[in-house]
Simulated assay, not measured.
Amino acid sequence: MEQPSESERGQGPAAGRKVLLHPLLVTVPVGCWIAGAVFDVVSRAATRPGEFTTASTWLVALGLIGAVVAGLAGFVESLPIPVGSVAHRRFVVHLMLASMVIVLYMVDYLMRLGAPPDRPVPTGLLVFSLANTVVLVVTMGTGAAIRATSR
């Protein structure tokens, strides 16, 4: 009779690894916010800018909801990281940046509520949206650094 392979016995390269929800869940707010920034830029050149302005407002709102869910999952998944370790210090930096990103996008959303929905995104809001995207990308990098350190 043939012996089961390592992967069939659960001893292969992926044995003992658990699937983390946070890296999967953050794709929702990141995708929404980046798509929102793209729509903001497109609204400046579109023949019907209101559609892109409205869509980007909805994307910012959906991103906020997704960020709260992803953040809760990330916090729970970070609990086993030993306090004082390099991974924990990186987690604290990531948590502070992620919290700042959420606040920035809340401000972004509130600013959008005061902007006319049938016109292109105002220049100031466009610049703010693009700046938020830069902070978002930096925050993503700190999250990746945590994962690389905690393996």
Rank of each mutant, 00 (worst) to 15 (best):
Q3G: 03
Q3S: 04
P4M: 09
S5M: 10
S5E: 12
S5W: 14
E6I: 11
E6H: 14
E6N: 14
E6P: 15
E6W: 15
E6C: 08
E6Q: 15
S7T: 13
S7M: 14
S7F: 13
E8P: 07
E8R: 10
E8Y: 07
R9H: 04
R9P: 04
R9M: 10
R9S: 07
G10C: 14
G10K: 13
G10A: 11
G10I: 13
Q11N: 09
Q11L: 13
Q11C: 04
Q11S: 09
Q11G: 05
Q11Y: 10
Q11I: 14
Q11H: 11
G12R: 11
G12E: 10
G12S: 09
G12K: 11
G12D: 06
P13W: 06
P13A: 12
P13T: 04
P13L: 13
A14K: 12
A14Q: 14
A14I: 12
A15V: 04
A15K: 02
A15D: 03
A15G: 03
G16I: 02
G16M: 02
R17Y: 10
R17T: 11
R17H: 12
R17F: 14
R17D: 08
R17I: 09
K18E: 13
V19R: 12
V19Y: 05
V19C: 08
L20V: 08
L20S: 15
L20H: 15
L20Y: 15
L20M: 15
L21V: 09
L21I: 10
L21D: 07
H22L: 13
P23Q: 06
P23T: 03
P23S: 10
L24G: 11
L24M: 12
L24E: 09
L24R: 07
L25H: 11
L25M: 13
V26A: 07
V26S: 02
T27N: 07
T27S: 09
V28T: 10
V28P: 03
V28I: 11
V28E: 02
V28R: 02
P29H: 14
P29I: 12
V30R: 01
V30T: 09
V30Q: 03
G31D: 07
G31V: 04
C32D: 07
C32R: 06
C32Y: 04
C32L: 10
C32V: 07
C32P: 06
I34M: 00
I34P: 00
I34A: 01
I34E: 00
I34H: 00
A35R: 00
A35F: 00
A35S: 01
G36W: 04
G36I: 08
G36K: 05
G36S: 13
G36Q: 04
G36Y: 03
G36M: 06
G36T: 05
A37H: 01
A37Y: 01
V38K: 00
V38H: 00
V38N: 00
V38W: 00
F39T: 06
F39R: 03
D40H: 02
D40T: 04
D40P: 03
D40L: 05
